[in-house]
Write a protein that binds this DNA or RNA. Structure first.
Lengths: 246, 246
DNA sequence: CGGGCAATTGAAGTAGATCAAGCCCAGTGG
DNA sequence: CCACTGGGCTTGATCTACTTCAATTGCCCG
């Protein structure tokens, strides 16, 4: 079961600094970091490439060094559901790996990306030796649980326009980039994606965005969304009483 | 910050065996169990009583010794959302406590219950000393994350009848009790509860259950549901092609 | 420059919410 | 013991937000 370096194709790791951005490894000793680094690989992910596929056995932990990755589940009825988008420094695929279960979703690069990949057993060994990593992991996972719970509560009850607004607000927080006119989602996203995040149809999303654009709330073009008045979006998302101008 | 035994009103703990049913403590030494036991309290929860209230600071971990507890969130718009039902041996409130955040939901006993409560710092100390507890915790949380993710994927896309079916199936697995005619949910549950689990209205749930009852799929009366043909329910839940008779 | 993916937009259909009564049954207390 | 009360449940009628179906347009990349 020993996995020597080179267990997977790809160039050796560039530098330890990439690992330091991962929350889970904050405050870890140089030695331990070196251990992860030595067992893992940096890999290029061309736009559209899959880091892993739904249903495949999960034997690896992944962390995004650069780029953007979409985690999406295919439902039995064939529909897709976008679980989340991964930004740099975030880990993905680790829950399944830790649980010894197959990946529950596809991970697709939406832009050219770079990921760092290492075998799960290194993670396990590390946790056994350094309790604070395991504890940090519980914190990370706890945050995920809470986020999912509140997201689920939303899903159940709110009307579609609100769900889309919330989805967009979440994207702005996670991947917003300041521009002259407002805040732009810093990666290409289709209306289809937005629909699959919120459980709406492509058509409804298109109409909704069009309406918001007419109101001057957002700018959008093919695969590009810029929020001009974030607060106005929040007003819709939270169903606040306020009038629809900032 | 030290919390001596007796930090909370209630009788002292009855026996160590109650703790052994908790997954998190499986395989823990007698000493460690004794430590938790010494710092905690067993408490009665009369039907309708709250174990904790949404928004209150979470300084305690809870585990249900006996009974049934409903975890429900009140949304800003006033609506309620039922996150889950707790059965005996399950922990609740621990994620918030571990994260140092307020409880995200109310915990209400739906029948007369007994809970075991202990301060969060004991949990923290235990994790620091026994990495395998922390690791077990990551496994528990990982399972929660996966369950929530798939539940969320459902919420987004399926039609209401399917969501209700899935909710019921989940309840059957978790709280089903064999009877002559089928499997009964072993605690009183209202249509309102079911509606708040699935994001439907009371009315739709009522109509749906009535239809299922007419089909001989279930029996129901006030606060009581018995599933006669679980498989038929699964067929609806998964939208399988099969005809609607077992 | 043309093929295909992304987006728009109209029209029609429908699942489920909402509104509105009324009923049934389990306690409660006189 | 019986009337009363109120929570849980049912059931009909209407309304509408969203989906579905069906074209059509426009943009970008090869």
């Amino acid at each position: 079961m020993a996995s020597p370096p080179g267990w997977r194709s790809g160039r050796p790791s560039p530098h330890i600094s990439a690992l330091k951005d991962i929350a889970l490894f904050k405050g870890l000793s140089e030695d331990a970091l070196q251990e992860v680094l030595a067992c893992g690989q940096t890999e290029r992910l061309a736009k559209g490439a899959l880091a892993f596929r739904q249903g495949a056995p999960a034997e690896t932990c992944h962390s995004l060094v650069h780029g953007r990755v979409k985690i999406a589940q295919t439902r039995p009825d064939g529909g897709q559901f976008v679980i989340r988008f991964i930004g740099s420094g975030e880990m993905f695929g680790s829950v399944a790996a830790l649980m010894g279960q197959p990946f529950p979703a596809d991970a697709t690069a939406v832009v050219d990306s770079i990921q760092f990949v290492w075998p799960i057993h290194v993670m396990r060994r590390l946790m056994m030796r350094h309790p604070d990593i395991a504890i940090r992991a519980t914190t990370e996972l706890g945050a995920r649980v809470q986020e999912l719970q509140s997201r689920m509560a939303e899903m159940g009850a709110t009307r579609v326009e609100q769900r889309i607004a919330r989805g967009l607000v979440r994207l702005v927080r996670q991947a917003g980039r300041r521009t002259e006119v407002g805040i732009e989602i810093d990666f290409p996203i289709t209306r289809q994606d937005l629909a699959e995040m919120t459980g709406a149809t492509l058509h409804t999303v298109s109409r909704t965005l069009a309406a918001w654009e007419a109101d001057g709330l957002i700018d959008s073009s093919r695969r590009r969304i810029t929020v001009r008045r974030p607060h106005g979006l929040v007003v819709i998302a939270e169903d606040l009483p306020g009038a629809r101008d900032d």
